[in-house]
Design a protein around this nucleic acid. Structure first.
Lengths: 202, 202
DNA sequence: ACCGAGAAACGACACGACGCGTTTCCATTG
DNA sequence: CAATGGAAACGCGTCGTGTCGTTTCTCGGT
């Protein structure tokens, strides 16, 4: 329960889990329908069958609600596969990300608007980087370091650069309206190109 | 004067150029100070020394103002160099983009918020893709096709994939708060990696 | 194991402030 | 003269907060 914006208060004791779920679900539903921007806290409250006050009690802003909703929604698919075949693992993981996070309008539209909000709300930016992206980047880095140790990519490869080259095109397409997102074949082309530039000297 | 959202009106006859400039400048200044989201049309009008009515006469929304402002600001640096050395040309062009568009908070913050708005305003999305990004992507594609003809990259290389791999990391860093943007050396590393995966069979 | 007191969360509703996009009225300008 | 630009105000909606009465959970006493 990472309450990113409640530094002073002790962990709360009573909290309606059903209200929490209803609020998070309602926020993503409304983002999917209208986009993040037009969604209001009042609308979230109305759809969740909840009072505005209840939302403001637990979250400081609409952005914090959506961030937690995204984190909940994305968690199940967080695990990075490790079959030994780096190329296939990347295709599987990135494919899951594309389907679950980016091509699904429910989550995609919410993410875009949330990212925009982070650029004038530093606490939200920290939440996005630390809570949402951080753990997933760490997962990917671990997997890449293991592949490097196994000699599947060159020993001086920078895992963070690799991550950037792999994942940046996904967000580029999502955010800048560059066509539909990669299907499995397109994804394979992307992964192959990036891995090729990190191939060990044979 | 690409008035992206005024399909019915004929081209206007009298228009105060000084007001136009003041409005566009004010919009970018305010975006730099507070971020795109909190900026209001009223604030733009006040700072530009102009009435709200004047803004709404020529632009349909805040987003349209910022889009035109960005297009004006970015135009001077639009030209793609062509020295014959693809690698150096890319470093120069992308370096200019990074400095002029991304690391400059004035333009960077405005762009982020504008992108968010495009996701619930289809006309704005078309303006962004067609007017702002389109011409620049076309420039890059031309330059890459020329390099392909010259045998500097493999003959089956997809220029659009190449563009995506090159530019996506820039926006990835800008939008997702991934550290400071590439300096010249980092840029060279990025370009080298991408070009390596498109090297012609030697 | 039961129960009752107190605290906290909850829903409903109302508030003042502010930005929205528009309109009216008038002065300015080509 | 006709279109433009400036000043001010409109009704509307959302913001974040406040109040009030009710419900729900926690916990200590018998």
């Amino acid at each position: 329960m990472p309450d990113q914006n409640a530094p002073a208060q002790p962990p709360h004791r009573r909290r309606s889990e059903s209200s929490r779920r209803a609020i998070l679900d309602a926020s993503l539903d409304l983002c999917a329908q209208h986009g993040y921007g037009p969604v209001t806290v009042e609308a979230i409250a109305a759809r969740a069958g909840v009072s505005k006050k209840t939302i403001y009690r637990w979250w400081p802003s609409k952005g914090a609600v959506v961030l937690e909703a995204l984190n909940d929604a994305a968690n199940p698919a967080a695990d990075f596969p490790d079959s030994g075949d780096l190329r296939e693992d990347l295709v599987v993981q990135m494919g899951g990300l594309v389907r679950g996070l980016l091509s699904d309008r429910r989550v995609g539209r919410a993410l875009v608007g949330l990212i925009a909000d982070t650029h004038h709300d530093p606490r939200l930016a920290h939440g996005l980087v630390d809570d949402l992206f951080g753990p997933r980047v760490d997962d990917a880095r671990r997997r890449l370091l293991k592949a490097r140790d196994a000699g599947q990519i060159r020993s001086d490869a920078d895992p963070d650069l690799l991550i950037e080259l792999l994942y940046a095109p996904l967000y580029y397409r999502l955010l800048l309206h560059q066509g539909t997102l990669q299907d499995a074949d397109e994804l394979r082309v992307l992964v192959d190109h990036v891995l090729r530039s990190f191939a060990p000297p044979s």
